[in-house]
Computed example of a mutant assay.
Amino acid sequence: MKSRREFLQKLTIGAGVIPFALQYQPAFGREKEHTVPDGPVLRVALMGLGSYANRVAEAMQSCKRAKITGVISGTPSKITDWQKKYNIPAKNCYNYENFDAIKDNPDIDAVYIITPNSLHHPQCLRVAAAGKHVICEKPMAINAKQGKEMVEACEKAGVKLLIGYRMHFEANTLEVVRLRKAGEFGKIKFFQGLSGFKIGDPTQWRLNRELAGGGAMMDIGIYAINGSRYMIGEEPIWVTAQETKTDPVKFKVGVDETITFQLGFPSGATASCLSTYAVSYLDKFFLVGEGGFAEMQPSTGYGPIKSWTHKGRLDLPHVTHQTTQMEEMAAIILDGKQPIIPVDGKEGWKDMVIIDAIFAAVKSGKKVEIKY
């Protein structure tokens, strides 16, 4: 099976060096902005012990402020393996039927939900009801209604809801956002986001509408949606979209293979994006304004991210994304730190509103207003 995550890893490892004469030098001392201060440790239980959970767990071994203290899985053998590998006591291990008991476990502060998309909503509600903070993989749900209910449930319970937007803490991404805010590109006019790969095993959950809530758009198109928002620095107000399906057997009704979509923003800027399960090597962001541009390719893979502007190369030092993400999320939950690019539940909900509008535009063939 060739998953999105395997694709992202291979793409970034195999990315060639793009010739560029100049080497950009970031402003002195700016790296201090993202330093996580010493302090208490966030004790995390991982829910869903698949391939990405393994990646997160490995990355967390380098964290100073986030530690794996529990696991939740429907597969007993996985729990046993994780207990041995990460020295997790039996009292901190749960299955999907009994994990509500984390309410009485002081060893767990937060639960990181890394399960199929359609399970995020009910699992988030249960974790919130147990009084634990929620970290949820993207997409946060399968539609905006569910996303809103997740936000409200966590607010009612007095716990944080954070979404696994690892790119919001990545150095090159943050530098491009900083340059845009500083006016280095002038008035922003256009963004392009390309996200895609050829998906493998036709029986996997990502091609099951009931579990995934869709196809490529939910899985990888969300990178271009979210990227358009933080790169342009505005929320889109309308969308048009077109779907192409070449294999209706593999991509059944409700499971999109390829969708191209266009977004309009209040300033007049526009975005043109592609989400596909049919073409590999698509991982590119391009932002251009009246005074310059920024390009990233790979733009959302596991790294290193390759980036440059009209002034030269960026290519800031690579740190494992999941390590940085969990360190920063610990600071958000424990210290009240405010990230430069939000990762809260409302941020995730906005992406779901846009995805709902994209699907509506595909169905109607018309421009759809995006209503938050």
Rank of each mutant, 00 (worst) to 15 (best):
N92K: 11
M352V: 03
L162D: 00
S195V: 09
V279N: 07
R206K: 09
V127N: 03
F286Q: 08
K85L: 13
P89A: 07
K145C: 03
G39A: 03
L263Y: 06
I333S: 03
K138V: 07
T246N: 13
I199S: 05
M217Q: 06
K252E: 05
E33Y: 12
Y165E: 09
N208Q: 07
L49E: 02
T320P: 03
E347P: 07
V343T: 11
A141H: 01
I88W: 05
K148T: 07
V41T: 08
L274C: 02
A59H: 02
F185Y: 13
A144K: 00
D104I: 09
M150W: 04
T258H: 03
G264Y: 06
M47S: 10
L334P: 01
I88S: 10
P76G: 08
G158C: 00
I259D: 02
T244P: 09
Y277F: 15
C124W: 01
A27Y: 00
V279H: 14
V249E: 11
V151Q: 04
T300S: 11
S73A: 05
K350Y: 15
D315H: 05
F261S: 04
H168I: 00
A57I: 04
F185L: 12
G50S: 11
W205Q: 13
L11E: 08
E152C: 01
L274G: 11
A90F: 09
V134C: 06
N105G: 05
C154R: 00
Q242P: 11
Q83L: 07
G196P: 02
G193L: 06
A141M: 05
G227H: 08
F285G: 02
S299R: 13
G268K: 15
V362D: 04
Y277E: 10
E152V: 00
A357I: 05
S272N: 14
V111L: 07
P266A: 08
A141V: 07
Q325R: 07
H310K: 08
A144C: 04
E290T: 07
V177K: 08
I332G: 02
T35V: 15
V177S: 09
Q23E: 15
W238S: 14
G365L: 09
V111Y: 02
E295K: 15
Y165N: 10
V253D: 12
V319C: 06
Y281Q: 15
P298C: 08
M150F: 06
T173R: 07
R166D: 08
W82T: 04
R180H: 10
K160Q: 15
G147E: 09
G70Y: 02
K84S: 04
A129S: 06
W82L: 03
G336K: 05
E327Q: 06
V41W: 02
P116R: 12
R30H: 11
V176D: 03
R178D: 11
G39P: 14
V177W: 04
Q322A: 10
K306M: 11
D107T: 00
P339H: 12
V253N: 06
Q322C: 11
A241L: 12
P236L: 11
S73L: 00
P339G: 09
K2H: 05
D219V: 13
V111W: 03
M352Q: 12
K371A: 14
R5Q: 13
C273V: 14
A144F: 00
A216Q: 08
G16F: 11
F169H: 14
